[in-house]
């Protein structure tokens, strides 16, 4: 079975739970045979998708404003980016929009974008409605899920969706077409803003 390494970059304001999401994703199916990484900033997990093995190399970024300028070093070459916001913090959703903008301008052209509204277990304190976020995600053709790293809700789903949207290695059939459509979006946008 073919093994593909997929670099996935985690973006989002500090404190929204980026690393918790990854931690949950990786640790849930902890396999002692696989060498653990030295820390939670960089983690890997291999999942099977159709007839391929997808090895996610997950690069966490520091969400602080002061480190923001370093982000390009982290997201370059990423196959996908997961941008995380906190559903109980409106501000983190605005930051997310900035990340989307930046990725469009400077990110890899075909990067698969996933938006994760974390802490959905804290529905009482919600500041960002699911509909608003979903609409925004649709407008940029991004994957959207509300997650809870704490209660392990929708964590695996994010990555499964990413696997689906990653263009298959062999350029054939419908999957390629699907990927293609997604890919075209960013470049169109870019052209218009020239």
């Amino acid at each position: 079975m073919a093994l593909r390494e997929l670099k996935v970059c985690l973006l989002g304001e500090t404190g929204v739970g980026k690393s918790s999401i990854v931690w949950r994703f990786v640790e849930d199916s902890f396999d002692p045979n696989i060498n653990p990484t030295i820390g939670a900033s960089f983690m890997t997990k291999t999942v099977q998708y159709q007839n391929e093995l997808h090895k996610f190399l997950i690069w966490d970024t520091a969400g602080q404003e002061r480190f923001r300028a370093l982000a390009p070093m982290y997201y370059r070459g990423s196959a996908a980016a997961i941008i995380v916001y906190d559903i109980t913090k409106e501000e983190s959703f605005q930051t997310l929009k900035n990340w989307v903008k930046e990725l469009r301008q400077h990110g890899p052209p075909n990067i698969v974008v996933a938006i994760a509204g974390n802490k959905c277990d804290l529905g009482d304190a919600r500041e960002v409605t699911e509909k608003d976020a979903k609409d925004f995600a649709d407008s940029i053709h991004a994957i959207f899920v509300e997650t809870s790293a704490k209660n392990a809700i929708n964590i695996n789903e994010v990555f499964r969706e990413i696997s689906q949207r990653i263009p298959v290695a062999e350029a054939s059939g419908a999957a390629a077409g699907k990927g293609f459509k997604l890919r075209r979006q960013p470049s169109d946008t870019r052209r218009s803003c020239c």
Binding site: K18, G39, S41, A62, Q64
Partner: peptide, 21 residues
Amino acid sequence: YHSMNTNSTPGAVYGADDFLP
């Protein structure tokens, strides 16, 4: 990482937000 985890709340997961500083 080891130093970060000593004297901190057990079970805390330290990602890049904490590691880079």
